[in-house]
Design a protein around this nucleic acid. Sequence first.
DNA 1: ACAGGCGAAACTTTATACAATCCTAGCCCA
DNA 2: TGGGCTAGGATTGTATAAAGTTTCGCCTGT
Lengths: 235, 235
Amino acid sequence: MAAKPRPKSDAPDASDRVSRIREGVTAAILEHRLLPGTKLGEDEIGEIYGASRTLVRTALQQLAHEGIVNIEKNRGAFVARPTPADAREVFEARRLIEPTIVDHACEAASPDWLERLQQHLAEEREAERRGDARTSVRLSGEFHRLIAEMSGHSIYLGFLKELIARSSLIILLYRRHDTPACGTDHHAGIVAAIRKRDREAARAQMLSHLDEIEAELFLKDPVADELRLADVLGV
Amino acid sequence: MAAKPRPKSDAPDASDRVSRIREGVTAAILEHRLLPGTKLGEDEIGEIYGASRTLVRTALQQLAHEGIVNIEKNRGAFVARPTPADAREVFEARRLIEPTIVDHACEAASPDWLERLQQHLAEEREAERRGDARTSVRLSGEFHRLIAEMSGHSIYLGFLKELIARSSLIILLYRRHDTPACGTDHHAGIVAAIRKRDREAARAQMLSHLDEIEAELFLKDPVADELRLADVLGV
DNA sequence: ACAGGCGAAACTTTATACAATCCTAGCCCA
DNA sequence: TGGGCTAGGATTGTATAAAGTTTCGCCTGT
């Protein structure tokens, strides 16, 4: 008997190899193990995952479309390096979309979902407690994705996945000081609002949560690297 | 002397072949020449554009990511067939995003941009006048994209491109009767509001414009094809 | 006559080979 | 000694070939 005659119609999380590569690289970027500007050689990645360049290339192209990888013609793929302007756009988009998402999530709140949220909060606290910064930053992003999944709105979910991934790079690049991953447990407050199905409170808390994250960023203006050099050596 | 020492860094509209394929197929879908469910064979397209299947495949994957093509494993690529649920999500997202976009556009309004908008309106009317439905429906979508470009917000622009393309398929599938492409020239009203830099009016007109488009749709419930068959033959 | 199954053709998927491009290092010459 | 130029290596872009899967037609048996 074949392992999977036909999983459903399309694999939910896609067990195929290109997805494995994509998710592996994505996780590495979201956990801040791969830094912006890092070269992602096709042979290199292919060897790691035991895959041909064809598959690696497909995965990299998908990541490029999600905005966390830049592909430069004849040069290769690099981890994206969002500009301050990009950062402002990303957070403006999040401030627009996420309140609406959490609003929907309030309506979709079921005991099952609330349980998952609660468990997620526990994982976040656990990672925080033992000082595991990498897991912590990843879970912090996944919290937002979880709420988007909960809302049942697949388009918002797709948009938000992209925004979260970019946010992770932005926070890595522009955070002022090493403040804890996501402030003073705003997430718990958001979950509480969802539990009470208080849509207005949920929207408000999500918005202020995002504001707080962005407030921690220092979005100095562009300064292409050459210009910065001139600035430093200029006297 | 080489023809192009280095066009800039990346080609603006991408003169490379995969973009030509992508834009060709996109245009065909947006102009309702390719109908939902149509099989997009790799050989077939490759022969049309004189390209290898490698390039065609790349283009199709990009279109799949944009949501206007479905790729079924081992079966091939097909023009997407949005469900009524998809349609509701798309228009909800547009109602959320586009008022904000047009708001930004008001601030970005310059004589140059207003000129482009005016010219676009003229083209729309011209196509409408001579009954060129295909050009008409394409221009109607491009109007919204133009405003997004005007807003200068590249993330919103990316999101909206996707939403517009899907909208085109949705309108094709679910429009009640063949009402004129975009109602009674709401677009002109929106441009007028932008010209006056009246952000509130622009938002309101955009919103009612979208409402009107959606109101013309008949979003009957899911009915997967098998289920519909059972329904039809039930008795 | 019809149901079921075998087989071949067509297509997608993956891998590999070839071509083009870029980066680097070394050399030559002023 | 320093700058510019050229050759080699490395890496990406493209095409083609091999492998696997699905689909459709035909054929046989009942």
